[in-house]
Design a protein around this nucleic acid. Structure first.
Lengths: 330, 330, 330, 330
DNA sequence: GATGAATGAGTATTCATTCAT
DNA sequence: GATGAATGAATACTCATTCAT
């Protein structure tokens, strides 16, 4: 939307009344006097309230009046080539409505569309690759040290020395020892979330997807046994611990996992009634968690992936053999 | 009521007249010259008496004057950040009134309120429990503290204080903080081994026994959630941690558990081939462990025992519904 | 007031109506049901409000009713030998009045007197003389070190070593390095406040008193030059510094100094109009402060007390000689 | 709007129907399947169109249905702690409405408010002042920071950031942090020496000159309160402090000040015998110093220059009123 | 010249453990 | 036996200063 010729603008224009009104809300340089606008709005809404028989009538009248008013002004601003001003104005109007308790606000869809276009789509995250080398070195060292000697037994000096950097550098990249641990867990678990998300993004049979997810999950913890061991060691920081931290991260990264699984459960193959889903979900994590633990304590003498079929079989069909009888073909 | 900045107090102030009056009643250090104040009060009241027609008029006039006077001074003291001084002053005034026979004394409610706040409430007397022996008291306190705040966040001072014993006494019964934790877990887990042992001692059907064991196990950890939470928190001591400690203890106490279960599996009802038994054993512990964890993090808002049937059902028959029957082709 | 024979009490008593009312406010064991009493009070006051023509009438009626009601109940409690219960009851009543906005509350002076007797006069401060040895040693060392090397240049290790105690012991007696400094200043200046207070407590001529105060003040800072040097060095802690700290302490210890001086200025000998007093007060401190500083920088080669007459002369009569002419006798 | 605890989110939840619907629009990781949502929306709107008698009825029905639907989902996302997701969803809905020709869209004001909060406000652009040279910028910043937060509390990073230069540049112009402070004080005090020197250069009456000097001095410290506050804060560097530094500088710059003053005292108007001059000189500085301090601590709420006449009056003629005349007997 | 990433010496503070009373 | 004052080893964290780019 190109700005019109400013001089022509100056000559032409709307009715003087609208001029006067809009003139109150804006400086000559186009900056918005929000408080002035809100004051005027409140005055008008109060007046409407007084003239309305009850609160329902007020809602209807106010919504109607406001839609017309905003429409008029936003149209005007649009013609002036100031569409960006609309968003501030509309924001103020909506906020005022929310304060005054007006339930709904409506606006022509095209205008709303234009205003909403000012919402940025995504924040581009800057990856400074030059710094990441040192950060990675520190994290690698910390993971090794924490997993080996335990978090509380490891000192920042140890980590810095192992990473081959100065102690101060650790504090350049991480606010505190706690932050180092947290960042470690968060950063190093990114990969698995992507994988799980991928699995549940396609439209495969739900049971197959669960099998795939368990398989991938176990592969991930086997490949990252230091990391997962650290999570398991359940170090307490303030009032959370690594397990809490990890789970909160899982759920914040996969906030729609439950919904997605349920939506995929079209044939109603898995138990999703009541609390059962949550129990199953946690229980399965726990099942794998302790099988992993057994493997770790054994000194990793066997291949954890060998356990995958058994785990999947038991989690899906139970520990009891009887069911085998009904599936002789298997 | 926070004391104002003493410096700002000095700078501000009332009229010199009030200054001079208050200055007569108080030393520079704020101590109250009660006799001076009483003398002045008596003089004023006498003067009022003389100018009053009868005793009723005197009462009214005196009350009015006194209310105003006290109000003025107490306000002043309040602004000075010396509300404590008000109580002495008010006490003296009331006493003087009682002596002179003035029937009632009135004062603004807010001031009275402030003055009365200096009347201490009765303190509840602490009962020092001397019945249970010291070691138990220390362990109880340690369990509570460690489970509540975490092992590393708890200090020996905390534990000793909670137990109501001297810090030195902790070291009479336990070699070190680590030893206290270890003893705690070992000592408090005795009971469950007895229970598990009992269950597998009788000749019930193996499936029923497993069901009973799961049931009892969950009951135990629900009843001893502090203890189990502590085990879960997986504190690292030297090169073991609480989970290792607990498991080592389980296996040292129940060395024939696996053999016993397999011997009971006469009808070959459960999977015990190869590695399957160990996997099932650990996995099942893990399943319960994480369902417990879910319960703990929820704030124990529901009854953990309600989960028992679901857990047993899934562990024995799997997460898949008897969908097999409705899909015979699979 | 001795408790009457409980059994006789049980038999006798007031009208059943009062019994019933008081019975609602107290348990059989005499514990006070505050909320019940407040509820009843609120109900009565609301009822009075409804029947009062305006808010003034309400105040009068409510005060009258409340006085009678409290009088009745407190009398009753007194007779029962439960005078301590009166204070809780009265506190609740006053608080309720404050909440409801009732301006004044009046009560028979004798009752008020009894209730106020529950306000403790002074909190007895416990001086553990056995610990004070170590505390004193630490403070002595800290004063020496801080004054000599500067606060920021001194470490806790330095102080502990100089005091000949373990570093941990410093933290047993002082929360932090900051606290050590603050305590030092507060503790070591006690003496001078007592002295100044004494001076202004007697009824000497105000000019003589000021002279005495300046004299004593200079003697104090000369005798405690380390301490005063420390105050002068104006170390910043958080958002205050030692000078602020000291002054706040002066004013909190001598909150009525200004009032007292003004009250003593009967013959209007010194300037106390408007801001003049504060200016004079601070200015005089500053005058002495810098003369002290000059002395300190000179290496204390002369006797600071020799300056006292000059300082007093200038502060009282100015730097100009002319005034000498009007006092030829001097 | 703080993100809820992700864990608790998982446990709670809505009906399975809503789960399944939302699960279709979002991936497990919360990313929005816009096309899926639009398709579903279009389908529903078509269906509404078919069942509506005319276009007005359609508008009404569609708006009502859409408001309810969006409300439901946005509420759900809100409870999940995913308010950001609402904006994408709402944007898509509005766009779809605009395409389909639905005139208005309404939504509860509170939701609109939340969505609109994602429109970023315009950020004020920082003007990097490149006109003044670097050294000045650094000193300005240092003065501001040191005076505001205290020398020890300010870091070189703070100063560099405030000055808008790199940390390394500070070290190009100043050898060390100490050097920065010293240079600051020396450099910025130049002006006052010139002023003082000027005053005592002319041949005015000595008393008038002293008055002028006091006046100018106070104006200088009032105008340069940051600088003078810094001098007052008396920061210790090695074995001197800012006050020493300043005074040494005064005397090195005005080595003949004393001689000049005495030479001007032809009529022997002021006291210059013995030590008196030095005492007067320092004392007067101190007097002003503390009056300045009082002003600073008051938050500069009044005009320091208003104090000048009082200060001059007292320093020249003393604190005692000309009471001498009214009490000739003294 | 300007920059800011890297550094490590320096320090306040904690707390398990000891031991005299 | 019980206590808690005294201790100092251990450690997270800060920030002035350097120096490669």
């Amino acid at each position: 939307m190109k700005k019109k010729d400013a001089f022509l603008e100056l000559l032409g224009g709307k009715s003087n009344k609208l001029f006067a009104e809009v003139g109150r809300y804006f400086s000559a340089d186009g900056s918005f006097h929000e408080e002035e606008f809100r004051k005027s709005l409140r005055a008008s809404l109060s007046s409407i309230k007084e003239h309305s028989s009850d609160s329902t009538a007020f809602s209807t009248n106010a919504d109607e009046w406001l839609t017309a008013k905003l429409n008029e002004i936003i149209n005007y601003l649009d013609e002036k080539g100031m569409p960006e001003a609309s968003s501030s104005l509309f924001k103020a109007a909506v906020d005022e409505c929310a304060r005054i308790g007006l339930p709904n606000v409506s606006l022509p869809a095209v205008h709303l569309n234009a205003i909403l276009s000012y919402i940025p789509d995504k924040k581009p995250v800057k990856h400074k690759n030059n710094t990441s080398d040192m950060k990675t070195r520190i994290m690698d060292a910390a993971l090794k040290k924490f997993a080996g000697d335990g978090y509380h037994q490891s000192t920042i000096d140890d980590v810095a020395e192992l990473a081959g950097v100065g102690k101060g550098s650790v504090y350049r990249y991480f606010k505190s020892k706690d932050d180092l641990l947290t960042s470690l867990i968060v950063d190093r678990s990114e990969e698995i979330f992507k994988r799980i998300n991928q699995i549940f993004s396609n439209e495969m049979d739900i049971v197959e997807q669960i099998q795939a997810a368990i398989h991938d999950w176990i592969r991930f913890i086997a490949d990252n046994s230091d990391l997962y061991g650290l999570i398991q060691s359940n170090i307490q920081i303030h009032d959370t611990n690594t397990r809490d931290m990890f789970f909160d991260h899982v759920f914040s990264k996969l906030p729609m996992l439950k919904e997605r699984v349920i939506s995929l459960n079209r044939l109603n193959q898995i138990r999703t009634s009541n609390l059962t889903f949550d129990t199953m979900f946690f229980g399965s994590f726990g099942y794998v968690d302790w099988v992993f633990y057994k493997w770790l304590r054994s000194g990793k003498v066997y291949n954890l992936m060998d356990e995958v079929p058994i785990i999947i079989e038991i989690l899906l069909h139970g520990s009891i053999k009887e069911i085998v009888d009904t599936q002789p073909g298997k």
